[in-house]
């Protein structure tokens, strides 16, 4: 057991790093989805914007100033983009969910194509900021320090999101909106404003995840789709509208992806979707989703 652990420690830590990134990416999607029923298919495109932001600011040499600047810009851009998307979905609020999917997928296609017009279709890699670009020995292998840092960043962000959602009055509003939107609006709260805020923050987190993920996954025009699929899997496994679910889902998927690739390389590509199918068969509403649905 100890041998196995030390052999696979790299994969396990790597899985936690991927899980942290996935949590940052997926938590906004989950709350927006659970709360407002907005299936934001542009979430992956927002991640892509983050990676190109990082690329633009860090292409001439990676500095802490550039990295933090990219993070700050990503947060601002994300807030604006998410707010704008929220306003755009408002006229569709009473229409079927597929109409919103049509809108957000349209936005996603436009964003991805505009990025490809500006930056071309080449794949780039970007180094982590100075000091985090070394590797450290863990167990029988070595891991980039940046991935360990990513675990820390993910845990801090998870803690912040958890405290905000569970312990503050704003968070109570968000949870109440997830549970019963009509009741919240009947109590005199304009849930359109709540939606603008939540979609804005969720999109900001997606773009921040894009910047944070660039040293890991690089810059690739096809990332928007693969990242969106991953985030959707996390959200569904964890259950809609649950912060805890998004965290557990992200960690599970991080481990499944990383350990799966290390232990069963020939099955790696099935494992993610296999895990999704298994969870949905055993717990049709996700691990932390609503137990029983009133009909």
């Amino acid at each position: 057991m100890a041998d196995w652990f030390s052999e696979n420690l790299v994969s396990i830590l790597n899985g936690f790093a991927i899980g942290s990134l996935l949590f940052i990416l997926a938590v906004g999607l989950s709350i927006v989805f659970g709360m407002m029923g907005v299936l934001n298919l542009a979430h992956g495109a927002f991640y892509l914007v983050g990676t190109y932001l990082a690329y633009s600011l860090l292409d001439d040499g990676v500095t802490w100033g550039g990295f933090l600047g990219a993070l700050a810009l990503a947060a601002v851009f994300g807030l604006v983009a998410g707010g704008a998307l929220s306003v755009m979905t408002e006229p569709l609020a009473k229409r079927p969910i597929l109409d919103q999917a049509l809108l957000t997928l349209g936005v996603s296609l436009i964003v991805a194509e505009v990025l490809s017009i500006i930056y071309g279709n080449d794949v780039y890699s970007v180094a982590p900021p100075p000091g985090l670009d070394d590797r450290v020995d863990v167990g029988d292998g070595s891991l980039p320090v940046y991935r360990l840092a990513l675990i820390g960043i993910g845990l801090v962000l998870a803690l912040i999101v958890y405290l905000v959602v569970e312990k503050t009055s704003v968070g109570a509003l968000v949870r109440a909106s997830v549970a019963d939107r009509e009741m919240v609006s009947a109590m005199g709260i304009d849930n359109r404003k709540v939606k603008v805020a939540v979609l804005g923050i969720g999109s900001a987190l997606a773009m921040v995840a894009g910047v944070l993920g660039t040293p890991v996954y690089g810059v690739d025009p096809g990332l928007d789709e693969s990242v969106l699929l991953l985030a959707l899997i996390v959200v569904v496994i964890g259950g809609l509208g649950s912060v805890k679910g998004a965290l557990i889902g992200a960690l599970v998927i991080g481990q499944v992806d990383s350990l799966g690739r290390a232990l069963l390389p020939e099955l790696a590509s099935f494992i993610l979707f296999g895990a999704l199918a298994v969870v949905l068969i055993v717990r049709p509403r996700g691990l932390f989703g609503p137990r029983k649905v009133a009909s």
């Binding site: 659970g34 029923g37 609020a93 939107r181 609503p290 137990r291 029983k292 649905v293 009133a294």
Partner: peptide, 14 residues
């Protein structure tokens, strides 16, 4: 006519 809000009781816990 499908003019009901985007989500029904679906995503709400009982």
């Amino acid at each position: 006519s499908g003019a009901v809000p985007g989500t029904s009781s679906e995503e709400r816990p009982a």
